[in-house]
Amino acid sequence: MKRTLLILGVTSIFVASLSAFKPEPKTEPAVTINAPAIPKIATMQMSGGELLINKSDCIGCHHKINKLIGPSYTDIAKKYPNTDKNQLLLADKIIKGGSGVWGKIPMTPHPKISPSDAKLMAKYILSLKK
């Protein structure tokens, strides 16, 4: 019993002495950053039509470059010249939907999109022709 108390006493003193030990925090030299050394980040600007497309469900079937369920925006731009007539035609297709031009899968109508917003979306899509 005395031996156990002696071992517990020595152990608690040892643990207490370790808890009092606190290593000095390592300090690193301060780094000064000069404003000219920081590169300026280019801000991306989206057109109104692109913003409307990104907010809508269009991205579920269409992609800017790759064909998904529907054609890519760049493929649409290749097929239709960027004219007012084609902007109105595509705006009408966005609102009313359509089928047969790009295959058997129909495009769902989007009656909640206003004609002016649909025209902005079509104008953006047709601007992607390279």
Rank of each mutant, 00 (worst) to 15 (best):
P29H: 03
A16K: 00
I65E: 13
G100E: 01
L68K: 15
V15N: 04
K67T: 13
I69M: 13
L68M: 15
L51I: 13
K79M: 11
I38L: 14
I41C: 00
G70A: 07
A91C: 02
S12N: 08
M46W: 08
P39D: 09
P29T: 11
Y80E: 09
S116D: 15
L51F: 06
I53E: 03
I95C: 03
S17H: 09
P109L: 05
D117I: 05
P71M: 04
I13E: 02
P36S: 09
S19F: 14
L6A: 13
L90N: 05
K78R: 13
T43D: 05
D84G: 12
P109Q: 07
N66D: 13
S114N: 07
G48D: 12
P115C: 07
L52F: 01
G97Y: 02
G9M: 09
K123Q: 14
C61M: 07
Q87D: 05
A77F: 11
L88K: 14
E24G: 07
I125Y: 05
A16L: 13
P106A: 08
F14G: 08
I38E: 03
P25W: 05
I13F: 14
G60M: 14
I7H: 03
L90V: 09
L5K: 10
L51K: 14
P71C: 01
S99M: 06
D117C: 05
L5P: 00
N54E: 13
L8T: 11
L90Q: 02
L8D: 00
S47Y: 03
T83I: 06
T108P: 08
L120N: 14
D75S: 14
K93F: 09
C61N: 00
L88H: 10
M1L: 11
N34S: 13
K96L: 12
N34R: 12
P25L: 09
I38N: 04
N34Y: 10
T4L: 15
S127T: 06
I13L: 15
E24V: 10
K93L: 06
I65V: 15
A42M: 08
L5R: 11
P81W: 02
L88R: 09
L5T: 07
A77L: 07
P109C: 03
P71W: 01
T108Y: 05
L6M: 10
L88T: 11
T74N: 07
K112D: 14
T43S: 11
G97K: 08
K55C: 07
M107H: 05
P39Y: 11
K112V: 06
L68H: 08
A30K: 12
L128V: 04
A122P: 10
G98F: 12
A122R: 10
I94M: 03
G60F: 12
E50C: 01
C58S: 10
K129C: 00
L120V: 13
M1N: 12
I38V: 15
K2I: 10
F21I: 14
Y73L: 06
H63L: 02
I59A: 10
I7T: 11
I105D: 04
G98R: 04
K96D: 06
I7V: 15
M107Y: 03
Q45W: 01
I125W: 01
Q45I: 08
S116A: 15
M107I: 05
G100N: 01
K26D: 14
L5Q: 12
G70N: 06
H62A: 01
A35F: 08
